[in-house]
């Protein structure tokens, strides 16, 4: 009989993938005010992976806990996570003012928070997105595994269970690599792992009744000190648009000007 899974899925609220990000006027960050936000796409994959594990049934999944740390609006992505199938969620609230003053949590701070949650909630599997699409750090999962002393399998494109061992396929240059690792462990997800489901209306309704706990960083006794400093954020140089010529003569003239002929 294999161990039942108690899964933690951290989710991040980020600028919607389809929105074109703009640098703010002070050039210190990306403009977030009035911009559509959604769940980090990699985190959607993590939720989907967890829900599919439960649907498969072996090993049994006792509980899927979603967690988000950030401003009050993070509740939206937690509701989405629960509508997709997470059982309950924790919102570690960081006020907008605090984010403004100190900046967002850094990967190490998040990893420490997650470690504390894992211990408190007795988790034996953490599934995270391999990175968030806003800061692209790709660090939290690895740091968490390090802090916990657990095995890690990053960028998973396939997850299979063999007793208490988990076999994870990851895409590497020129092929795939398969890792086998015992529970407890940390898995980070990659794009090919699955195709996340839509939140269905009945499940959206049900999600409203699911438990959503509000907590703070202090509740977990986490040092969230910032160690990184953003000096400047700039847009990549604008693409030089091509020119149009009226006719063949125009083109020949242009090419001569440029010394091409």
């Amino acid at each position: 009989m294999s161990t039942a899974l108690k899964i933690l899925v951290p989710v991040k609220r980020v600028i919607d993938y389809a929105v074109k990000p703009r640098v703010n006027s002070a050039r210190t960050a990306i403009e977030t005010a009035g911009v559509k936000h959604s769940m980090n796409p990699f985190d959607e994959l993590s939720i989907e992976a967890a829900v599919r594990m439960r649907e498969r049934g072996t090993p049994a999944v006792t509980d899927i806990l979603a967690l988000s740390a950030g401003p009050p609006k993070c509740v939206d992505v937690l509701r989405t996570a629960m509508a997709m199938g997470a059982d309950r969620s924790i919102h570690v609230e960081i006020s907008d003012a605090e984010v403004k003053e100190k900046g967002e949590l850094e990967p190490l701070g998040v990893a420490k928070l997650l470690k504390s949650v894992v211990e408190k909630e007795e988790r034996n599997l953490v599934i995270l997105g391999k990175q968030s699409i806003d800061d692209d750090s790709n660090q939290t999962g690895q740091m968490l595994a390090g802090l916990l002393g657990w095995g890690q399998a990053t960028q998973a494109s396939k997850i299979e269970f063999e007793g208490d061992n988990v076999s994870v396929t990851r895409e590497v240059d020129g092929g795939v690599e398969t890792l086998r690792c015992p529970l407890p462990m940390v898995i980070t997800t990659d794009l090919r792992l699955n195709e996340p489901r839509y939140a269905s209306l009945p499940n959206i309704m049900k999600a409203k009744k699911k438990k959503l706990e509000k907590m703070t960083l202090q509740d977990f006794g986490v040092d969230d000190g910032r160690r990184l400093k953003t000096l400047k954020v700039e847009e990549p140089p604008a693409r030089q648009g091509g020119g149009k010529v009226e006719d063949v003569d125009g083109m020949i003239k242009k090419l001569k000007e440029l010394g091409a002929i």
Partner: peptide, 9 residues
């Protein structure tokens, strides 16, 4: 039955 889009994609 129905679904509600959660993001732009």
């Amino acid at each position: 039955d129905g679904v509600l889009a959660q993001d732009e994609t």
